[in-house]
């Protein structure tokens, strides 16, 4: 029977130059439900599909606030994300205390990157089985970062990780040029449309299974619109933006009437 001899720990290379434990960790990310993140000049949004373990249980949260100006979306082992989330919360708080400012997103992401990389190079440790999308604003504006269990981090304009996320990424690539100048609502709409793409045939977005997180930067006042997660009935108005069946076109194709009804719901 075939057995892989090179996947017992994360410090041994296979003869092909691969480290299987790290690759398996990347597989854990693909098992998680899909999360999408997009950044514009003014906002960064995260949207996610939540799963419930069984009919009788509640839905597992996917979006977590880290600090006033940062939030994360997780795909993979939730319990591993907990460790990273706690670490990030502490770092942000420490930075706020010593410098009285928003921690730069890149510094924060670099720190979890280094933390995760160590686990891939020490015998007896295992990589984190979770991927993150980190959305936040700092003095240089909105940012979106991807984090992988290998410790790799990358700044993104838009990205999706998790199960069937390729479909969502394809949508994002098709609409890449629109994101930069998108408004807050348009960005959320794009995010939800990307999510929709990755759904299996008979599933759809509902108020139960959809989460939306937004963080923004008001350039005039240099103030942060704090990271906020919308769940349950709060996502209803956003779901209505993508309720129609015109899959392509995105927000720009939406009629003026659609927008005004969306406003009425809010009022």
């Amino acid at each position: 029977m075939f057995r892989n001899n090179y996947d017992n720990d994360s410090v041994t290379f296979s003869p092909q130059g691969r480290i299987f434990q790290v690759e398996y960790a990347a597989e854990a990310v693909k098992q998680g439900s899909v999360v999408v993140g997009i950044a514009s000049k003014t906002h960064a949004v995260l949207v996610a599909i939540k799963r419930n373990a069984e009919e009788l249980s509640s839905y597992q949260k996917k979006l977590f606030p880290i600090d006033e100006h940062v939030g994360i979306a997780i795909a993979g082992l939730t319990s591993d994300a907990r460790v990273l989330s706690n670490f990030m919360k502490q770092q942000c708080l420490g930075h706020r205390l010593t410098y009285s400012r928003n921690m730069p997103i890149r510094s924060l992401v670099d720190m979890i990157g280094s933390k995760a990389q160590i686990n891939t190079q020490h015998y007896g440790k295992r990589p984190y089985g979770v991927g993150l999308l980190v959305a936040g604003v700092d003095d240089s504006g909105p940012h979106l970062f991807e984090f992988q269990p290998s410790g790799m981090t990358e700044e993104m304009i838009a990205f999706a990780i998790g199960a069937r996320s390729q479909m969502a990424r394809t949508y994002l690539e098709r609409n890449l040029d629109k994101f930069k100048t998108s408004t807050r609502e348009e960005l959320i709409e794009h995010g939800l449309r990307a999510l929709k793409e990755s759904l299996v045939q008979d599933r759809e977005l509902t108020v139960e299974n959809t989460s939306v997180g937004v963080v923004g930067y008001v350039k005039e006042t240099k103030k942060t619109e704090p990271f906020q997660v919308f769940d349950g009935h709060e996502v209803q108005r956003y779901l209505e933006l993508v309720a129609d069946d015109k899959k392509e076109g995105g927000p720009q194709a939406a009629t003026v009437e659609d927008e005004s009804t969306a406003m009425d719901v809010d009022a």
Partner: peptide, 16 residues
Amino acid sequence: KPGHLNAANLFKYLQK
């Protein structure tokens, strides 16, 4: 300069 410590940030640091 966006992303850089300004005087208020630096002062807070020195104070700590």
